[in-house]
Design a protein around this nucleic acid. Sequence first.
DNA 1: AGCCTAATTCAACGTCCGTTGAAAGGCAAA
DNA 2: TTTGCCTTTCAACGGACGTTGAATTAGGCT
Lengths: 214, 214
Amino acid sequence: MAPRSNETKQRILNAAEKLFAREGFAGVTVRQIMREAGADVALAYYHFDSKRDLFDAVLMRRADYMNDVRHAALDAVEQRHTDDAPTIEEIIEAFTTPLLQLLAEDPDTWRDYFALIAQINNSPQWGGELMTRFFDPLVRRFIDAIRRALPDSSDADLFWCYHFLSGALTLTFAETGRIDNLSNGVCDSSDMDAINERLPAFIAAGFRHICKPH
Amino acid sequence: MAPRSNETKQRILNAAEKLFAREGFAGVTVRQIMREAGADVALAYYHFDSKRDLFDAVLMRRADYMNDVRHAALDAVEQRHTDDAPTIEEIIEAFTTPLLQLLAEDPDTWRDYFALIAQINNSPQWGGELMTRFFDPLVRRFIDAIRRALPDSSDADLFWCYHFLSGALTLTFAETGRIDNLSNGVCDSSDMDAINERLPAFIAAGFRHICKPH
DNA sequence: AGCCTAATTCAACGTCCGTTGAAAGGCAAA
DNA sequence: TTTGCCTTTCAACGGACGTTGAATTAGGCT
C-alpha cells in the first residue's frame, strides 16, 4: 500500500511549489494547495507536520539534485584542467548552465522552483538562513575554484562579486516578465539561449575586473 | 485640523513599509500594521481604501523622490559632457550612488524601502507590473545614455545587461544578511563603501564586455 | 457660544485561516 | 476471514482575517 503514499506526497509538493512560487509562503493557504493537489486538507498534515514544514520540503526536494548537477559540472571542468587552471568563464558556466539544462529538460518542473528561490534569496525573512542552509557548500566550492583562477584576489572581492552574480542569476531565472515589459517585447524572459549567450560572459567580465591582486 | 491627518498617515506608511519589507504583502496583516503605528485598525481604511491600496501608497511615497534624485544625478553627468560622451562607469554610478546617498543621509528611512523593492522585483506576482509602473521612465533614460556611451550595441544586449544590473543591485541593497553568512563575517551587508567600490565597476565591466557593435 | 467637518474610536460582520481528533477505507499478512 | 497498519476523509475548534457603519472626539469658523 505504501507506494501510493509517495505519489500523493509528490502531488502535494508540486501544488505547493507552484503556488508558493507565485505568491510566497504567506500568500498561499494550505487549503489552496490541497485544492490544487486534489486532496483533502487534513492530508497535508498527515504527510507534513505543518505549513512551514511543507515549505521546507518543497525547497529540499530539488535542492540536492540541483546541487549534484552543479557539482558534476564543476567536476568536469576540473578534470579537464588537472595541470593548468580553468578560466573564470568555464567556472561561471559550470555554475549557470546546469540551470539552463534542467529548464530545457523539464521546464514545468524547474521554472516554479527557480522563481521560488529568487524570492527567498531576496527576502530578509528567508534569504539569510535558507540560502545558506541549502547552497553554501556548493557556493563555497565555486568561490574556491574562482580564487584559483584569479590568484591573489581578496576574499572580500570574491564574496561581493559572487553576491552580484547571485542577484543577477536569481532575478534572471525568476522570469518575472519584467524584461519583457521594459524592452517592449524585444527580450523574452524565457529565452534561455539569450541568457546563455550573455549572463556568464557578463559575470566573468565583472569578476575579472574586480578580483585582481590587491 | 488637516495637518494632524497627514502626520498619522505617515506613521501608518512607516509601519507598513517596515513590516511589508520584512514579510511581504501577504505576510503582514492590517492589524499588525496599525498596532505598530499605534492607531486603530479602522483608521487604515479611513486613510486608504484597502490593504492593497496601502501597499501601493508605501511604494509610491518614495518612488518619486528617489527617481528625482537619480534623474538629477544623470543630469549632472550629461551637463559635464555636452560635447563628448560620458563613460559607462559614470552613467552606472549615476544610477547607483544616489541610493548610497539616500542610505547615508537617512538609513532607517531607506533600508526598508530598498528591501521591499528587492522582493517586488523578484516576485512573479508584482515584479512585472509594479517595477514597470514605478521605474521604467528612469530606466529607459539610463539605457539610452548607456547606448550613447556604447554606440552600435544592440537593444537586446542593453536590456539584458540592465536586467543583470537590476538583479545585482536589488539583492545587494536588500541587505538580507546572506553575504554575511556566506563569508563568515568577512563581508557586511550594510557596508556601503564596500559596495560602492565594487558594484558600479563590476557592472560597467559587464556592459563593456557584452554591448559591442554586433 | 455653537456648528461643521475631518479624524478617530468602537464593535461587529461574515469568511477563512492553520490545525486536529476521530472515523472510514483499503490493502497485506495471518 | 479476520487482524492490523497505512492512507484518506469528515467535521470541527478557536482565532484572526479584511472590511464596514455608526458613534465619538477634536479643532477651526462664524
